[in-house]
Each structure stands twice: as C-alpha cells, then as structure tokens.
Nucleic acid binder design. Structure first.
Lengths: 221, 221
DNA sequence: TAGATTGTTAATCGATTAACAATC
DNA sequence: TAGATTGTTAATCGATTAACAATC
C-alpha cells in the first residue's frame, strides 16, 4: 500500500481522531465484521458520520457508495498511517510513582509501543527492574537514546526539573515528548510536546459541570 | 467577590485554559510579583496575548489599560472560578498499577483535590492502605459515594469493564469522570467525561512528527 | 500630557455538519 | 433498476488573532 503524500496536510483535529478510528476498526476486525458504514462507526466512536466520512476522505476514496467500508482494508490504511506496523521505541524519564506505574504497564495493549529504557536521578532506584527494564541513572540517558535511535520520550519528572530534563531529551535527539508536568516548557517548533495533566482535567470538568449542577462542592472547613 | 452569571456561556476553549492561567498566576504570586501584562503572561503560558485578553474579558474587566493586571486580584478571580477555595472530593475505581500510582500521588500539589475512597474488585487488594486510603470492594462504592456526596471519579479499570463501572458511578451520583480506558463509553449528555489515553497521544505525536522527520521508526523484525 | 496596555472589533482561520449529487 | 451510502459541497459554527480606539 502506498501512502498518500498529502497525508500531512490533514487537519490537526483529524490527526487526533486517527487512533480512535483505528481502535474501533481493530475491534470490528476481531469480531469478524467485514463491512462497516460510517453511521455504524459513528455509534462506536461517538463521532458524527459526516465527520468520519470527511476525515476518511483525506486518505483517498476508502469506501464504496451504497456499501460502506471494507473493514480489513480500512484497518490496514490506518495501521499504516499510525505506523502500527513499526515499533515505536520510547524512553521514560522519571521513575517515581507514576513513572513506575507506566513502566509496569508498558503499553501491554499496544504491542508496537515499547519502553526501552528508564532513567531517574534517585540512586536508590538504580538497578531496580520493572517489566524487564532496569532503571538507570540520568547520566546514561543521552548515550542510550543515541545508540538505540529513540525519538519518543515520556517525561514524568517533577515540574521543577522538567524544563531541564526536556532540554536533555531534545539534545539527545528526542522529537516527541509526553510530559506529565503541567508547567509550560520552551521547546523548538519542530518538537512535538503533549501535556497530560490530571488536575487540570478535573478542574475543567468540575467547572463545566457547575453550569448543570451548581453547588456540587463541599465547603472547606 | 460575586461571580459573573454569564460565566457558563464562555467558550469551551477558554474553559480549558483556565487551569493554565491559574497556575501561572499562582507562580507569580509566590514570586511576589504584583502586576502582570498580557504579554508577560503570554510568555509563561505560551498562549498569545490577544487570546489571553479575550479569555479574561469573559469574566469582567479584570485589568487596567496601560497598566496590566493586579496579580493578587486576578488570581482570586480564577481561584473562585475553578473552585479552588472548595474541596473537590474524588473517588478512584480500579486500584491496579495506574490507580495505585494516582492514589500514591493523591494530588499532593493541588491541595483542593482529594481522593476520598478507592475501590477495586480484586480481593487481594482489599484493606491495602495507600496515602491513608484503604482499597475497598466495589460493593461498597455506591454507598460511599452517596454518603460522602462525591460527584467526581477517576476510573482506571480495564477497558472491558469500563462501560459497566461508569454506569455504576453515574448511578451513584457521579457527574464528572476521568477515564483511563480509551474505549468510548455511552453516558447521558449531562455527564462530563474525559478520556486520558497515553497510547493515542504517542501515536498522534509520532504521526505528526513524520511530516518533519520521515522514517523516525525502527522496522519490526 | 505622553506612553502603554487594555478590552473589543472585525477579519481570518479551521473544524463541523447538513444536504445531496455521484456512484455502487 | 431501486435502494443505499459514499465523497464532497456549501453553509455554519467556534476559535484565533491583528489592529486599534478607549482608557489609565
């Protein structure tokens, strides 16, 4: 299958929906479903069918009028787009509670994402092995990233040091970073940065809920 | 301080930026900074100054022309908007690796978000205490949520059971749910649902990175 | 006052979606 | 062919942002 060279003019919003599509298609495949209509996919994904058809159209004419989409074929298209046929190697920096939990999990459900190395600066953790990965000192991180040619990192260090650690990652050649500290990091424009911030999400949800249910909250003593 | 009754006609995009503003303002406060201009806040938050001014304008005339914003005052406005003066009580369902890591962390950096109860269906975990919270059997969850009047939940159960568990949460009175399983859950429109999905984020970042650095990936053996 | 920065306007941009001609 | 569903058009909606009059 040749990939459409225009794929990278596709809208950001579409890009963020690709994993949702892929996961639903995979489910259909596993269930042995052969064809699917945009309306059915809409039910599964909670994305409107018009949006789905429009999204899909960025990658060519994937379906057939009056028929729908071949599940096997479309799955393969998304698999290729998302590089699920290749392995995405990842390093983890910061092996505290959260880091260790992520390492323990190690993307078991996504066979093509693999944490290859874990680093921390707490010497009491050095050598500890989780999911077959030893926690190593930060000093070894750069060489490891370079020799393993890794481009993706998960950063779970405290916010005080996240700017500095991210700079080390970028210096070593990392281009995509999933960051668990909320503080905004200065990075070059060509670096992908994604913040995951549980507290923010909770604040925003509760805030939006107030419109529907005022006074959901308990007064502080 | 009286809250603007229009606050809930504010755009979604603005709502999602409130925690970012709040955090930066808190930092300025701690640093003893008294006034701040939208351009300075822009540097800290990486949000354009025009967007900041427009966002702020939804909550009244917060600043002064030719001067900027009183840090203390504006912080207080956001504190009130985000209910930081109240306590947001939370239950955690699913005390596996990730759940336990979240519990161990228990929002130490956000004094007003508190996990009050943790539930699982693995009896080998019952009674285990983390951050002062005992893991209890699922059967006790509903009563707990009702008696503690909790409206917010973190759901870290395997995707196979997340639909069912979310239904239990809603049945008990939960209205905001942070869900760590990627599968889309059917919920009533008045329930706030937020999905956190590490794999998806990595896929999307790597996908977007391909535009800049083709062939970042290692072929599978 | 002169200088600076807000709050707001108006234009632009990007994403969503209803509707339907084209097509299987 | 008749029926169904795609891919696409065109309208709508929501978010962003440059620019500047108002204001301190």
């Amino acid at each position: 299958m040749e990939l459409n060279p225009k794929i990278h003019q596709i809208p950001n919003a579409t890009a963020h929906r690709l994993p949702i599509y892929y996961r639903s298609l995979k489910k259909l495949n596993e269930a042995g479903v052969e064809r699917v209509k945009s309306k059915e996919l809409s039910k599964m994904t909670q994305i409107p069918s018009a949006t789905i058809r429009r999204d899909f159209s960025h990658f060519g004419e994937l379906g057939r009028s009056g028929y729908g989409y071949e599940v096997v074929y479309v799955t393969e298209v998304f698999r290729e787009l998302l590089n699920v046929n290749n392995i995405i190697n990842v390093v983890l920096v910061g092996a505290g509670n959260l880091g260790q939990a992520i390492l323990r999990n190690n993307f078991k459900k996504e066979r093509n994402i693999i944490i290859k190395g874990a680093f921390d600066n707490d010497s009491s953790q050095f050598g500890k092995e989780i999911s077959g990965i030893q926690i190593l000192p930060m000093e070894q991180m750069k060489d490891f990233i370079i020799s393993e040619q890794i481009c993706t990192a998960i950063c779970a260090v405290p916010s005080e040091v996240s700017q500095e650690v991210v700079e080390q990652l970028i210096d070593a050649g990392i281009t995509s970073i999933l960051n668990f500290a909320p503080g905004r990091i200065k990075v070059p424009v060509n670096i992908q940065m994604k913040y995951i911030d549980f507290s923010s999400e909770i604040f925003t949800m509760v805030y939006q809920n107030e419109a529907l249910y005022p006074a959901n909250l308990v007064e502080e003593d």
